[in-house]
């Protein structure tokens, strides 16, 4: 069948070998991933949570930053699809002394894995590897740039709870400057038609973030007012030494998500957080553990979304790369 003359069929696959960011996906591709994730979620509810789909495929989880949550989620997703998985964790310090990222990747590549799931502290590291590797590159977080599977699982969770994404008011509150989760979520949510507000102290709002189609405010009440979704971003304590705000206490009183602030949102608001949570810094425990919180749903959905991504990429064309 010649695809150029085939009638317009519903989208059933991704054109790419890589998932480098939400930026490279069309809205239809995002929806395909979310739809596929629904089927994958069902697999996770079976007694035997494993299907043979990626049998014989080797997937390397190449993590240059510590990440229990994302790495575990990918690993479970890979195992549920019967891929052979290999975890390579490299402390950044040893890399600076020795091998370059490119050399490390080429060595792994020589062992012919089907995919490399990459977490790296440098923005654009996945683009670099995608240019030189035959293996598909899945971005598990690159610097401050993107964390596409997190945004996909967030969207999946929102859609599961709200039935839609278009038209929802989503408020994203926290350290916007250092957040790849923010950047991927903004891209995805605006792509699917949400009304996205971002909020944080002025010192942590990236210059020109409005260019991504969001409204930025420093008034948390304004951001949360009437919101369908409130997404909290982690305050990375280790990055705050640059005096972006005076103290954690002051941050919590000014921007922390308390029950009183949540009350300004819609009655059926959902509260999200990519984790790990700093209780009493960006979010009050009563909110994190409260009835509106879907934080643990996000974690559960992460596996299904990553299964969908891996499945769809495994069937993707070998040498096309999404930006």
């Amino acid at each position: 069948m010649d695809p150029t003359v085939a009638p317009a069929a519903p989208l059933t696959g991704l054109r790419h070998k890589d998932l480098l960011g939400i930026a490279g996906l069309t809205p239809e591709e995002v929806v395909l991933i979310l739809d596929t994730a629904e089927a994958m979620k069902e697999v996770g509810q079976r007694a035997i949570k494993k299907v043979p789909t990626l049998r014989g495929k080797t997937i390397v989880n190449l993590f240059f930053e510590a990440s229990t949550r994302t790495r575990t989620s990918f690993e479970i997703a890979e195992k549920r699809l019967s891929a052979d998985t290999l975890n390579v964790a490299i402390a950044t310090s040893s890399v600076t002394k020795g091998e370059t990222l490119v050399d490390t990747a080429m060595n792994i590549e020589a062992m012919a894995p089907s995919m490399i799931v990459l977490r790296h502290a440098s923005s654009g590291a996945c683009h670099l590897l995608a240019r030189i590797c035959r293996a598909g590159i899945v971005n598990a977080g690159d610097g401050l740039h993107e964390h596409p599977t997190q945004a996909l699982l967030d969207a999946f969770t929102i859609r599961e709870r709200k039935g839609r994404i278009a038209g929802l008011k989503v408020a994203i509150v926290g350290d916007l400057l250092h957040s790849r989760v923010l950047r991927s979520n903004v891209r995805l949510l605006t792509k699917l038609g949400a009304d996205v507000w971002v909020c944080g102290p002025r010192t942590l709002i990236p210059v020109g973030i409005e260019a991504l189609g969001v409204r930025a405010t420093t008034r948390v009440d304004e951001a949360v007012e009437g919101a369908d979704v409130v997404m909290m971003l982690r305050i990375q304590l280790e990055r705050m030494q640059g005096a972006f705000f005076p103290s954690l206490r002051e941050y919590f009183t000014t921007f922390g998500m308390t029950e009183a602030r949540v009350a300004r949102a819609k009655d059926d608001v959902i509260i999200m957080h990519p984790g790990p949570i700093n209780r009493g810094v960006e979010i009050a425990s009563e909110v994190a553990d409260g009835p509106f919180s879907v934080i643990l749903d996000q974690v559960a959905n992460g596996v299904a979304v990553r299964m969908a991504v891996l499945y769809l990429l495994a069937g993707g064309a070998e040498h096309e790369t999404a930006a």
């Binding site: 923005s123 740039h145 990236p206 020109g208 991504l212």
Partner: peptide, 18 residues
């Protein structure tokens, strides 16, 4: 600081320190 690109919308979008 440890900036590596011009501080502006493009660097913000790409997650590059400005």
């Amino acid at each position: 600081g440890d900036g590596c690109a011009h501080e502006g919308p493009r660097a913000s979008e790409l997650g590059l320190r400005g």
